[in-house]
Design a binder for these strands. Structure first.
Length: 425
RNA sequence: GUGGCCGUAGCUCAGCUCGGUUAGAGCGCCAGGUUGUGGCCCUGGAGGUCGGGGGUUCAAGUCCCCUCGGUCACCCCA
């Protein structure tokens, strides 16, 4: 067993029909956000280490979960991306596309974590970002697009958690208040949280350790520290969501794992998901990130949705089954000639989905293969058919088989194939 | 990084408690029963260094130690 290779820890090999489902989900997302004017961007899968460092020196993502690439000189300057928001902002800072800039993306990210259900070292996300507008309506649009996407794939048991982290002076005062609050009870705080406090007091609120629960509950409320504009912004976000009938749950302790978030933050929890990792998406505003990456002071807001977890949640809810795949026609040939290769080629060029058997197996064996392929029709070419330039068409789900002229196959076949499920996807 | 549970055919598992002749089943795969025809049925076949290493023993899939891997959870997050 030690001689055989296997996929690296935390990665998975995906086969049909699951891979068909992945493709369908990505296609659904592309279609979904195209309707709202977003264009796809494809950033590289690795970046300068510093690009990701900007998302937060104090975060686990940066401190211990980065897949750092060893360069030839032995120095580490680059890393596989742990998320794509930073890459997209770097793209913006570098190329300066016109504002507002609405971009979506899809693809794998990498975090060096210990795997468990719903958490992998390579995981796929689809997401989008809007750079430029400061308008709360953009926050609403972004959240709504995520919410409607879950609806679109058929998920029902998703909860939207919403918070505002504030920004500017209010944020500074709040962080200071937290530092004072937790600092006064250091001995009551868990070891891990004491360390977090030194790095980023906000994130202590995120602690789920039981020993911290009382202190976290007694902590100052962020809402009391929001500046007037930030409070107004947040109110507008909520009003927009109300208008769209999108339910949300205010979660004052939702600070999220990346340091760049300001003001609106949100997360989507899949309640049907029987796993500890039940966040199927999240995002928020990051008004300072582009500037941190050397760009202009342009505000931004966006989200990322976890493809792996969405699909797990779909499993739990019986939603989004794999699309029909496979072929419609199967060619069975027991002749030594080129009839089968020619027939397959002709039909495929006409857009018919065709497979066949190889290695000169017996007709019985090939018929079994035809059955397994899911084809609606089998086309048989034995010595008799070859000699007479004809093909026997056998319906696989009942009906009389008949023999037609070789040149009439395509025309005779068409009515036997059930329309739309045919040539597309 | 820490902890619980689990590693026997391609897959799902029995056998391990109380060590003992050629390690089993179902499904899947291949072939035959029908010398040109699938699904059901019947028969046969291929396929396993029992995760790896060490130890105990006359004898280890079975007992002990180590190790690797998987999985779930903590932490954190998609």
């Amino acid at each position: 067993m030690s001689e055989t290779f296997q996929a690296p820890r935390g990665t998975r090999d995906i086969f049909p029909p699951e891979s068909d489902r992945w493709r369908a989900l990505a296609a659904a997302f592309a279609d979904h956000v195209s309707l709202a004017g977003y264009g796809q961007v494809i950033p590289p899968m690795f970046e300068d280490l510093a690009v990701f460092s900007r998302v937060g020196e104090s975060t686990d993502v940066v401190r211990k979960e980065m897949f750092v690439l060893a360069a030839r000189d032995g120095e580490a300057h680059q890393a596989l991306r742990p998320e794509q928001t930073a890459s997209v902002c770097r793209m913006f800072a570098q190329h300066r596309p016109p504002l507002p800039w609405k971009a979506w993306y899809a693809g794998p990210n990498f975090r060096y974590e210990k795997p468990q259900k719903g958490r992998y070292r390579q995981f796929d996300q689809v997401g989008l970002e809007v750079l430029g507008p400061d308008d709360a309506d953009v926050d609403v649009e972004v959240i709504a697009l995520a919410w409607r996407f879950y609806e679109r794939v058929g998920l029902r048991q998703v909860r939207l958690l919403l918070n505002s982290l504030g920004d500017g002076p209010g944020r500074v005062r709040y962080v200071e208040a937290l530092r004072v609050h937790f600092g006064a009870h250091l001995d009551a705080l868990s070891e891990a949280s004491r360390e977090t406090l030194a790095q980023n007091p906000l994130r202590v609120l995120d602690s789920k350790r039981p020993e911290d629960a009382a202190l976290v509950a007694a902590a100052p409320q962020l809402a009391d520290y929001l500046s007037e504009p930030d409070a107004e912004h947040f109110a507008r976000v909520r009003r927009g969501l109300d208008a769209l009938g999108i339910p949300y749950q205010l979660e004052p302790r939702l600070v999220r794992g990346l340091d760049y978030y300001t003001r609106t933050t949100f997360e989507f929890a899949a309640d049907a998901l029987d796993a500890a990792q039940n966040a199927v998406g999240g995002g928020g505003r990051y008004d300072g990130l582009v500037a941190d990456l050397g760009g202009p002071a342009v505000p931004g807001v966006g989200f990322a949705l976890g493809v792996d977890r969405i699909l797990l949640a779909c499993d739990a809810e019986g939603a989004f089954p794999p699309p029909r795949a496979g072929v419609e026609v199967f060619v069975v040939s027991t002749t030594p000639g080129t009839e089968a290769v020619e027939l397959c080629d002709e039909l495929r060029r006409a857009g018919v989905r065709v497979d066949r058997a190889f290695d000169g197996r017996s007709m019985k064996s090939q018929m079994k293969a035809a059955d397994r392929s899911g084809a609606v029709v089998a086309l048989l070419i034995g010595d008799r058919e070859a000699a007479e330039r004809v093909v026997t068409m056998r319906p696989m789900h009942g009906g009389e088989q008949r023999t037609v002229g070789r040149d009439d196959v395509l025309r005779e076949l068409r009515p036997m194939l059930d329309g739309p499920s045919g040539a597309d996807h």
